[in-house]
């Protein structure tokens, strides 16, 4: 399931609900991304995320489909916040269920790398120094290339 929403979410409740839907699986891996309190321009006041409704959800569905082709995963949940998000708040949750742990770890790692560089979100940092649009770091692009150039599977 894919959910893009302005509403805050409670990671424990989401993971618990996901677990209840995937009772037959042996492994669930989850990743929670939180808003760091420091931005490039100093103490963060808020992050603002834009998306392109419809296009963003489909770009995430394409990423999930790629992961499903590559690993044996039975279910996934991706929650991504948009709008204004406070420092310390959860921004992204990825949960993957699989029969065995290796598929779940790899798929969750892959989903996060692609969410950072291929999903249609635009992130602006608001700090006391002003506002700045954030683009992926070189390391983020290197992370996603690992899946294209190596035999990671």
């Amino acid at each position: 399931m894919i959910r893009v929403s302005e509403k805050p979410f409670e990671p424990g409740a989401e993971l618990s609900a996901f677990e209840n839907q995937t009772a037959d699986e042996g492994a669930i891996v989850s990743f929670l991304g939180k808003v760091r309190p420091k931005g490039a321009g100093g103490d963060l006041i808020a992050l603002k995320l834009e998306h392109y409704s419809g296009v963003t959800e489909r770009s995430i569905a394409d990423i999930v489909a790629k992961a499903e082709e590559r690993w044996s995963i039975s279910n996934s949940l991706i929650i991504h916040r948009v709008g204004a998000i406070d420092p310390g708040e959860p921004i992204v949750l990825v949960c993957v269920a699989a029969k065995h742990r290796r598929d779940a770890f790899k798929a969750a790692d892959f989903l996060m790398d692609y969410l950072k560089t291929e999903a249609y979100f635009w992130k602006k940092e608001i700090t006391s120094a002003g506002e700045e649009w954030i683009e992926p770091r070189k390391g983020d692009y290197d992370d996603v290339k690992r899946w294209q150039t190596s035999k990671l599977s």
């Binding site: 999903a119 249609y120 992130k123 649009w133």
Partner: peptide, 10 residues
Amino acid sequence: VAFLPPVSGG
């Protein structure tokens, strides 16, 4: 027509 600069999710 939408113009989409480099994305930054996650």
